[in-house]
Design a protein around this nucleic acid. Structure first.
Lengths: 339, 339
DNA sequence: AAAAATTAGCAAATCGTTTAATTAATGCTA
DNA sequence: TAGCATTAATTAAACGATTTGCTAATTTTT
């Protein structure tokens, strides 16, 4: 194991002070009037011995870790794993690394992790806030650490956030379903006050009201066993003889599809929130309200990095349009309807 | 913004030295003969003011960061995002945090990131090694940093690794396909010398040899545009009139399914490596060789943590069995075969 | 030519911990 | 009672960087 070379080793080898070396390495040669000759000499030697600063020492001194904390609901959900991928890429380009965790609806763990990330002095937070996290997030702000909320926000806590235009997305999906001559159009959602769920419900309502039709809304318990979800979705669709259904998350739609397939019940017309590989390939392929992950994460990182750098004091509350991707599930003539 | 409380603040407030406080906080009170009364006094006060040590300072002094570096091929691939989820959970239980990145077949980025993670003094690495990383990984070992390879390993570099029994998995899947009276059974794989690909090929071969049948092997370029993959898979299946096909990765199978669907060509019997939500719900549902992610990650973290702790000097080379999950795609009588 | 200003670089403090070495007080043995 | 252990705590030196002031040498100004 070869020993790491330190800044003091360089100074000693060249017969100069560590200060000079440090200034040069931090691009302060000009500002601190270090001669060009000296600068070149140091830089050459640094390259030769392959010196890399110890980030821990650097961070301890400067207070900057160049690490961002990412807290998502569930990293294994394709929506979030895609988000994680883009975020890592964007953060890397901006010189940051990501430390992540899944919260899995465990409020206690979420709180602990936020505290732990704060103890690790992360430069900023990216959070998909679950309910009950208001205080914790307010606490982060009080400690003056930049935070950007994502996917949903907390109305009572004033922070940056980047979300999709869920209301409009739900409105357009519902309207699309209604325009295909479906009368009984339902919404399958969650017992949740999170903004994205609230907005999707509002969008659905707006469309239903516009068409002056009765609404059918089924809410499921957050984090309930999948079997319960499947049973309830099935019951809702069958008992109400739904013509069409909008699912407010991709995993609810997946549960619905599983339930229907298991009982060999023909699909109602349907659409779902959030893209999923399954949806393109399912037979029939599934219409979705797709969030623009690339743009969302871009704005996200830009906002966070700008805040960390101390630029732009005012809060950014960003809403990105969704895209309705129409596939077979919302328009096909189903098999038994042929006859 | 309330100021962080430091160990020196505690010492000052209680009129004692920082050493005493530090010993007590690090559970060395007994060993260092600190009186019980003092221990209790300090612990009570620490709890009262909610002191949390600055991890940076701690890490700088001890050399332990309690951070693990995770480098995977693509975090958005459902196999790896599941791995990421389990790893984070297991690591958390062991007191570690995860810093991750996707390498996306970019060897240069992989090297840079490994170097950066080393500069950050990660306590250990978890890597799915791509080709060309031999030297870099050997370099990590030379710096005495624990590494566990995952999903595949590098035969020429002696490290811990945890992989699935790919050969047996491929053998059983192929045999299963052969036993369903298919004569022309092909393998769709990648131009890659990675061990998992090599083993899957070997497993396929073994089964084909056992049945004394001609083998059909199509390899695709790693990281090629999906359209190319789709075209080539289609051509392979159609031109060779394949009865059945084994896909060596889940995303190859997804590409294949897309291509067949787009051209409305009936599916051959098929099986694929690695689970995917799509596969359970596809019509027909897809038979898979499933890796036991929970067990893989458990062994992985155990191995890594044990090495970091300095226990167990010898290298652990672990192979976990795969499970063949038989679904419709490998056994159903297809529509056009009814007539 | 003395005073002022600029240039080029350095010593030492600092970030917040851990830990090796030391000390002062007390109890025990001979 | 002098000498030795033991106990309970302290002092000060790390860890490896950044940064605030300072100094000495040179140049410019008056």
């Amino acid at each position: 194991m070869k020993k790491r070379v330190l800044i003091s080793d360089i100074a000693k080898a060249l017969g100069i002070s560590v200060t000079t070396v440090s200034f040069i390495l931090n691009d302060k040669a000009k500002e601190k009037r270090i001669s060009d000759a000296m600068t070149k000499r140091v830089l050459d030697y640094v390259k030769k011995v392959g010196y890399k600063p110890n980030q821990l020492a650097k961070s301890l001194r400067t207070g900057q870790t160049k690490i961002l904390g990412l807290l998502v609901e569930d990293i294994a959900n394709p929506f979030f794993s895609n988000v994680a991928k883009y975020i890592e890429r964007q953060a890397y380009d901006a010189g940051y690394h990501i430390i992540y965790c899944s919260m899995n609806n465990d409020g206690q763990k979420a709180k602990e992790l936020i505290q732990m990330f704060m103890d690790r002095q992360v430069d900023g937070f990216i959070i998909t806030p679950s309910e009950g996290l208001e205080d914790t997030i307010a606490n982060i702000r009080q400690n003056n650490i930049p935070v950007v909320l994502f996917d949903r926000y907390i109305p009572t806590v004033d922070t940056h956030y980047v979300v999709s235009d869920n209301k409009k997305g739900a409105y357009e999906a519902t309207k699309h379903l209604l325009e295909n001559e479906n009368k009984r159009v339902g919404l399958i959602s969650l017992y949740s006050n999170q903004t994205q769920m609230r907005d999707r419900l509002e969008g659905y309502m707006q469309a239903m009201d516009e068409f002056q039709l009765q609404s059918y809304i089924k809410k499921l318990q957050l984090g309930a066993p999948e079997q319960d979800a499947k049973d309830q979705i099935l019951e809702f669709i069958v008992d109400n003889k739904m013509d069409a259904v909008l699912f407010s998350t991709n995993y609810l739609a997946v549960s619905g599809l599983k339930a229907l397939k298991e009982h060999r019940i023909p699909l109602p017309r349907m659409a779902a929130f959030d893209e999923h590989t399954l949806f393109k390939l399912h037979d029939p392929s599934i219409t979705v309200v797709s969030q623009n992950i690339e743009q969302l994460t871009k704005e996200l990182i830009q906002t966070l990095v700008a805040d960390i750098a101390g630029r732009s004091k005012e809060l950014r509350k960003i809403t990105i349009p969704c895209e309705l991707i129409i596939r077979e599930s919302s328009i096909v003539t189903l098999p038994e309807q042929i006859s």
